[in-house]
């Protein structure tokens, strides 16, 4: 079927596991905290600082050590820094919206700004996981207390249990003013986090 619709496509290279040894050497601190521009640099992106924090678990409830996490989100005005919005007046020059970290233990902490609500969407952050044993899985996290969660087109069709698995709970505020949100991700088994198919969708 697909071939009839798009006959000239090249065959995609297979995705493969990152294995357990994604180099820590490739880490980039500027991708682990999107609120700072770099050592000694004045300024930063607009918006409320938040810390998204939690644990990634496997099927047995053990921490998924060595997991590589990537984050993608809109800026505080709900605008993604993507080619479609290249000329948008609400783009924030100091916010790309892409983050990455590798967690040795399976616990993670990602400092960023609260994304704004995009067209008909509740504020959200897309999370991509790479690790040993899998090639890539993708999900999206929402935030407790956001009215728009009730009408979000991704969240709304899920049953209430799955919805709860994607909504980060508010967990207080740091002394430097960042709102803390907590979300555990379960890769497999009971209480499994819903993951999404970005190839066949």
């Amino acid at each position: 079927m697909t071939q009839d619709i798009r006959p000239n496509l090249l065959k995609a290279t297979n995705e493969d596991t990152s294995g357990p040894y994604f180099p820590i050497y490739f880490q980039d601190e500027s991708l682990e905290d999107l609120t700072v521009l770099g050592p000694g640099i004045v300024g930063g992106p607009r918006g409320q600082h938040i810390i998204l924090s939690g644990r990634v678990f496997d099927r047995h409830g053990d921490l998924a050590n060595g997991v590589l996490m990537e984050f993608w989100q809109a800026n505080s005005k709900g605008i993604y820094n993507s080619p479609t919005h290249a000329a948008h007046s609400d783009l924030d020059p100091w916010f790309n919206g892409y983050g990455r970290l590798r967690s040795a233990s399976g616990e993670y902490k990602f400092r960023t700004i609260m994304p704004g609500a995009s067209d008909k969407r509740a504020p959200n952050i897309t999370i991509t996981l790479f690790s040993d044993g899998i090639s890539r899985i993708v999900t999206q996290v929402f935030f407790e207390g956001q009215k728009a969660n009730e009408t979000d087109p991704l969240l709304q069709p899920l049953d209430s249990e799955d919805q709860a698995r994607l909504i980060a709970r508010h967990g207080g505020r740091t002394v430097d003013g960042a709102e803390v949100y907590l979300l555990d991700i379960v890769m497999a088994g009971a209480n499994e986090t819903p993951f999404f198919d970005d190839f066949e969708s």
Binding site: D58, A64, S131, E192, T193, F195, D197
Partner: peptide, 9 residues
Amino acid sequence: QRTPRKPLR
């Protein structure tokens, strides 16, 4: 241990 058991949405 790490492969989701439910189909992707």
